[in-house]
């Protein structure tokens, strides 16, 4: 219910700003292409994985330890946009990754368990036009829909003397997602600097882990030159 309320609220903000921009749009811009790169922090929900790992550790007969514990790393996003008079429309690709390691070693050998999680998001993004193009500052709302593809790779490795044993396990899961966001832009020459916040929502996720939640990002973009009428 809380998620639904959040979505409704964001949609309300998006629609309201879009309507406002449409009614106050002062320029007659030529269409053109643009490119943006973003880096930000996603929401990570990996606690169940940690619990499972920690529970497993208790049954180990040797004192293995967690040496790397799913660090909260930034995600990266690239956008290729077609900027029309009314909307910016384009393709978006996001990537985030993190992982963990359990390790033990002594003179007799080594035990290592690595778990790496990578999430790939492929989407179609639509952005509204800035409210006031006469100002170097602007605000855009946007919505992105696409597929979120999770790839979880585990490797368990034991080395006793010169006997080595390794087990690899790969798990993938692909979901439909939607991301709603709002960002502020600063225009200089053909470049754009931006900062924004969004809400990332995966549909029908039956896994105990996921990336639902708010995201914050900063970005830089480049637009092909456009002229005023």
């Amino acid at each position: 219910m809380q998620t639904q309320i959040k979505i409704i609220t964001l949609l309300f903000v998006l629609i309201s700003s879009n309507l406002y921009s449409q009614t106050n749009y002062p320029f007659d811009m030529e269409p053109g292409f643009g490119f943006e790169l973003q880096i930000g922090y996603p929401t990570l929900n990996l606690d169940p994985l940690k619990e499972t790992r920690d529970n497993g550790l208790t049954s180990f007969e040797f004192p293995a330890k967690v040496t790397d514990d799913y660090p909260h790393l930034p995600y990266f996003q690239g956008e290729l946009l077609y900027c029309s008079k009314l909307f910016d429309l384009g393709l978006a690709f996001s990537f985030l990754t993190t992982g963990t390691r359990v390790h033990y070693s002594d003179y007799s050998g080594e035990y290592k368990f690595d778990n790496v999680i990578s999430n790939y998001e492929y989407g179609l993004i639509i952005k509204t036009k800035d409210v006031n193009r006469d100002s170097p500052y602007g605000v855009q709302s946007y919505v992105e829909v696409g597929y979120s593809s999770l790839r979880m790779k585990s490797t368990e490795y034991i080395l006793i003397g010169n006997q080595k044993q390794s087990n690899d396990d790969l798990f993938t899961n692909t979901l439909l997602f939607c991301e709603l966001g709002l960002k502020g832009n600063y225009y200089f020459d053909n470049f754009i600097a931006s900062i924004g916040i969004s809400y990332f929502l995966e549909f029908e996720n039956e896994l105990s882990i996921g990336f639902d939640g708010f995201r914050a990002h900063i970005g830089i973009g480049y637009r092909l030159p456009f002229s005023k009428k």
């Binding site: 040496t67 790397d68 690239g78 290729l80 690709f93 993190t98 092909l224």
Partner: peptide, 26 residues
């Protein structure tokens, strides 16, 4: 622009996380 976008995607995906750390007992 499209070429840059493709390079960016490749660059992103090549940055998959690699866990680190060691726990050696003497």
């Amino acid at each position: 622009l499209f070429l840059i976008f493709a390079v960016v995607i490749i660059a992103f995906t090549s940055c998959e996380y690699s866990p680190t750390g060691s726990n050696f007992h003497n």
